[in-house]
C-alpha cells in the first residue's frame, strides 16, 4: 500500500510539472521558492493596522466590542484576580476557573480573590476558563493564543465563558507584527526548522452561527461569552 502512495506522490508532482512545463530540478525555480519562504516578506498592510500605540489600543477594544466581546482594563498583573472576580460576580457565576500553568496566573493571589483555580486542560464540565494571549492584533480585535501547557487549546473552546488576559504592550497593530512576535517567542526565525506552536488560535469574539436564516446567534459550539482583560502597565 505504501508503494502505491509513494507512487501517487510521484504522479501528482509529475502531473503538476508537466502542466506547468517546468522541471523540479530547475535551479532558478528552486531559488525563487526558497527566497520567498526564507524571506517571508510582508504584503500590503492596511493603514488602520499601523496606528500609533494609543489609537491602536482603542481600535483593539472597539473591534472586540463590535464583535460582541467585553473588555476591561487593569493596571498590573496583580489585579487579575480582582478583575476575574468582578466579571464572575457581574454574571453571578460560580467562582471556579480553569487555567493553564502560565506564570502570569501563578503570581495571582486566588485565595484573596475567593476564586478556586484548577490548573490543566478544560473538560466539558468546566464552565469558565482563563487564558493568557501572548500576542494580539488591533486591526480586527484579534487575540493570538499559543498552545502549550501554559495555555491548553481546550480552554479556548469548551467552557461557556472564556476570559483572556493580554498585556497592552503586546497588542500589535497588524497580523504581521503579531506573527513577528510569535516567531521571536518561539524561536522560529533561527535556522533548522520552523517552531510555530502546535496550534495558534486567532480569536476575535465569542462563538456564533448564522446558519439559521442568516440570523446571528451566539454560543454555537465555543464560548458564549469572551471577556478580555487588558493589563495597561
Amino acid at each position: 500500500m505504501s508503494s502505491t502512495r509513494t507512487h501517487a506522490r510521484k504522479l501528482i508532482l509529475g502531473d503538476i510539472r508537466s502542466a506547468l512545463k517546468a522541471d523540479g530540478d530547475d535551479r532558478a525555480r528552486q531559488f525563487i521558492v526558497q527566497k520567498k519562504l526564507r524571506g517571508h516578506a510582508r504584503n500590503l498592510i492596511p493603514s488602520r493596522a499601523m496606528l500609533p500605540i494609543d489609537a491602536r489600543q482603542r481600535l483593539f477594544q472597539t473591534m472586540l466590542e463590535t464583535q460582541l466581546a467585553s473588555v476591561a482594563h487593569i493596571n498590573n498583573a496583580e489585579q487579575i484576580g480582582d478583575a476575574v472576580g468582578s466579571y464572575l460576580r457581574s454574571l453571578n457565576l460560580e467562582k471556579v476557573i480553569c487555567t493553564g500553568s502560565d506564570k502570569i496566573f501563578d503570581a495571582v493571589d486566588w485565595e484573596a480573590a475567593h476564586i478556586a483555580r484548577k490548573v490543566g486542560r478544560a473538560t466539558g464540565d468546566d464552565p469558565i476558563s482563563l487564558s493568557h494571549a501572548d500576542v494580539a492584533a488591533a486591526e480586527t480585535g484579534t487575540l493570538f493564543l499559543l498552545s502549550s501547557a501554559a495555555n491548553p487549546t481546550s480552554l479556548n473552546f469548551l467552557p461557556e465563558h472564556h476570559i483572556v488576559v493580554v498585556r497592552a504592550v503586546n497588542i500589535s497593530g497588524s497580523y504581521e507584527d503579531a506573527w513577528e512576535q510569535i516567531r521571536k517567542i518561539t524561536g522560529s526565525d533561527r535556522q533548522g526548522g520552523v517552531q510555530i506552536p502546535r496550534t495558534v488560535n486567532l480569536i476575535s469574539g465569542p462563538s456564533r452561527t448564522g446558519d439559521i436564516e442568516q440570523t446571528i446567534i451566539m454560543g454555537a459550539h465555543g464560548p458564549r461569552r469572551l471577556h478580555v482583560i487588558v493589563i495597561d502597565e
Binding site: 473591534m63 464583535q67 493553564g100 490543566g120 486542560r121 478544560a122 486591526e139 480586527t140 480585535g141 484579534t142 498552545s147 502549550s148 501547557a149 491548553p152 487549546t153 481546550s154 520552523v194 510555530i196 506552536p197 502546535r198 496550534t199 495558534v200 488560535n201 486567532l202 480569536i203 476575535s204 469574539g205 465569542p206 462563538s207 456564533r208 448564522g210 465555543g222
Partner: peptide
C-alpha cells in the same frame, strides 16, 4: 464571504501534541 472583518476563529494547526501539551 460573510462580510466579517475576520471569522471569529482562525486556526493555524501544526501537527500533533508536543512535549508538555495537555491536549490536542
Amino acid at each position: 464571504a460573510t462580510g466579517q472583518e475576520l471569522s471569529t476563529y482562525t486556526t493555524f494547526t501544526n501537527g500533533p501534541r508536543r512535549a508538555g501539551d495537555m491536549d490536542g
